[in-house]
Design a protein around this nucleic acid. Structure first.
Lengths: 148, 148
DNA sequence: CTACAAGCTCAACTTAACTTGAGGTCAAGC
DNA sequence: GCTTGACCTCAAGTTAAGTTGAGCTTGTAG
């Protein structure tokens, strides 16, 4: 077979809709890999497109690069996901999405309940108390964001 | 009437579950206000607790400090929200929450549909195409995050 | 064979929302 | 009246996910 067409960064960028600088960045983070030409330029196999696609989907679902990286690395041989692997990943990610959705729903319902009550009374407000509990849990550096 | 008890930063921090440094920070951002004692220490009225409560709730809903600040400032006289104001704010924020939820749902359903298809085929995958469209929209600096 | 586009590396900048630290002041208990 | 804990200011650091720019090399089309 003729060797599969290899792609340059520019081509991958164009086809994947990700900036060249982002591809470089992903590479430093170990999310994608490339080999180099004699002239030190990157060349990618076609599988990089799938990898990048997965990265983007996962990001849209609110998964951090670190987590994505971990998920990809957890695959045997660190290979680009096959259909089977993709089943596992997407199922897991869908679950995390589900969780996030139900969290937001809880929040929305809390907000809805609070409309008109005008309470925010520190002791009684359900939304408030959530925060209080969180805060009283420790004095160390607190999380930057809501637990997801 | 005896003057309403005033609170120190430390007390506000303890009662609101927000770090002292965060309160200072909110002040520089104009989210809360304080007056000073002869010795240049901050003193807060009780209403600051409600303000901080609102800030935290809004943040949990995924609203940025900038937006919160704008919302609070949009109130006549920049006052701490009354029950009426709170109705307006929480309704608006609930709507934005609703939007976010339905966006995530769409994403989840896309993910669900894609399970097993293993496609990620750049052309056919609905999730993929979303990204592609975004990318082909311009060559300028691209958004840091998904539009919310 | 010579432009000029596309690549390369590395360092620095960006935004949000704070935290941490240094160096100095204030206040309250004993 | 002194010690200790709470405050103060201001500058710099932190994390995520990239982007931007400078200075230099490759590769390709005419």
């Amino acid at each position: 077979m003729a060797p599969v067409t290899e792609l340059t960064v520019g081509q991958v960028a164009a086809r994947s809709g990700v900036a060249v600088s982002a591809l470089h960045f992903y590479e430093t983070r170990g999310l994608i890999r490339s080999h180099r030409t004699a002239g030190n330029q990157r060349r990618y196999g076609r599988d990089v497109l799938r990898r990048v696609a997965i990265i983007k989907v996962a990001q849209e679902v609110g998964i951090s690069l670190a987590e994505i990286s971990a998920a990809l690395e957890s695959l045997p041989e660190g290979r680009t996901p096959t259909r089977e692997d993709w089943n596992l990943l997407s199922t897991a990610w869908r679950d995390s999405l589900d969780q996030k959705i139900s969290q937001l729903k809880k929040l929305r319902d809390g907000l809805t309940d609070c409309i008109g009550c005008g309470c925010m009374s520190i002791d009684k407000c359900p939304l408030r108390n959530k925060g209080d509990r969180l805060a009283s849990e420790g004095t160390g550096a607190r999380r930057l964001l809501v637990e997801r």
